[in-house]
Computed example of a mutant assay.
Amino acid sequence: MSLVVNAEEMGAFLDEVFPQVTGMFGIDVLDEDRLVMRMFVRDEHLRPGGTVSGPSMFGLADVSAYVATMARIGKQALAVTTNCSIDFMRKPESGRDLLAHTRVLKLGRALSVCDVLIFSEGIEAPVARASLTYSLPPQRP
């Protein structure tokens, strides 16, 4: 699937439509095949025991599926998550950013289906896996 928005434009768009997450995420790779999105892990992402919280990992998965979809359809702020299933497989390594490796599996007129593997930076085994579906805004004539 070809891109209509590059990484720099996508980062600026994300800052514009979701200013509350400015500085929380970065785009490491964005090409026709995949997105690698980084969550800069900070104290507010941690839960007792020093691990990254489940809601923080969900947020990374959700934002990365949104970015991967928008990069392919263009800047349409009103796309919304309609489904998410996430499996937490192991404890993230403390002191490491999280990386979401995201693929758009299907992009239709109404839905985008994405697969996300989340890793602690530098660790080979994933810490979580998510499947997300986005509802896309209808095309206007």
Results as ranks from 00 to 15, higher is better:
residue 138 P to C: 10
residue 9 E to L: 02
residue 34 R to I: 00
residue 11 G to I: 00
residue 131 S to Y: 05
residue 85 S to Q: 13
residue 5 V to G: 03
residue 60 L to Q: 02
residue 96 R to C: 08
residue 120 S to R: 10
residue 16 E to L: 05
residue 46 L to Q: 11
residue 118 I to D: 12
residue 122 G to Q: 14
residue 104 V to C: 11
residue 103 R to D: 09
residue 54 G to N: 12
residue 123 I to M: 13
residue 105 L to W: 02
residue 10 M to Y: 01
residue 85 S to I: 07
residue 83 N to K: 03
residue 1 M to C: 05
residue 135 S to L: 06
residue 77 A to F: 00
residue 2 S to E: 13
residue 115 D to V: 00
residue 137 P to I: 00
residue 42 R to W: 12
residue 84 C to E: 10
residue 38 R to I: 01
residue 17 V to W: 06
residue 66 Y to F: 10
residue 29 V to S: 08
residue 54 G to E: 12
residue 130 A to C: 09
residue 56 S to I: 04
residue 93 E to S: 15
residue 12 A to Y: 04
residue 115 D to T: 04
residue 20 Q to C: 11
residue 76 Q to S: 08
residue 95 G to W: 10
residue 44 E to A: 04
residue 40 F to H: 06
residue 11 G to E: 08
residue 52 V to I: 14
residue 5 V to R: 05
residue 45 H to T: 08
residue 36 V to W: 11
residue 94 S to N: 14
residue 62 D to L: 01
residue 67 V to F: 01
residue 74 G to F: 07
residue 19 P to M: 05
residue 115 D to H: 12
residue 98 L to G: 07
residue 75 K to Q: 04
residue 27 I to Y: 07
residue 5 V to I: 08
residue 42 R to L: 09
residue 135 S to N: 05
residue 64 S to A: 14
residue 96 R to P: 09
residue 115 D to Q: 06
residue 133 T to D: 09
residue 96 R to K: 15
residue 10 M to R: 00
residue 122 G to H: 07
residue 107 L to M: 03
residue 38 R to W: 06
residue 119 F to E: 15
residue 57 M to C: 07
residue 135 S to C: 00
residue 48 P to C: 11
residue 68 A to M: 09
residue 74 G to D: 02
residue 97 D to H: 09
residue 122 G to R: 15
residue 135 S to A: 13
residue 107 L to A: 00
residue 13 F to L: 03
residue 133 T to K: 12
residue 117 L to N: 12
residue 33 D to V: 01
residue 76 Q to P: 02
residue 140 R to I: 00
residue 105 L to I: 04
residue 16 E to M: 02
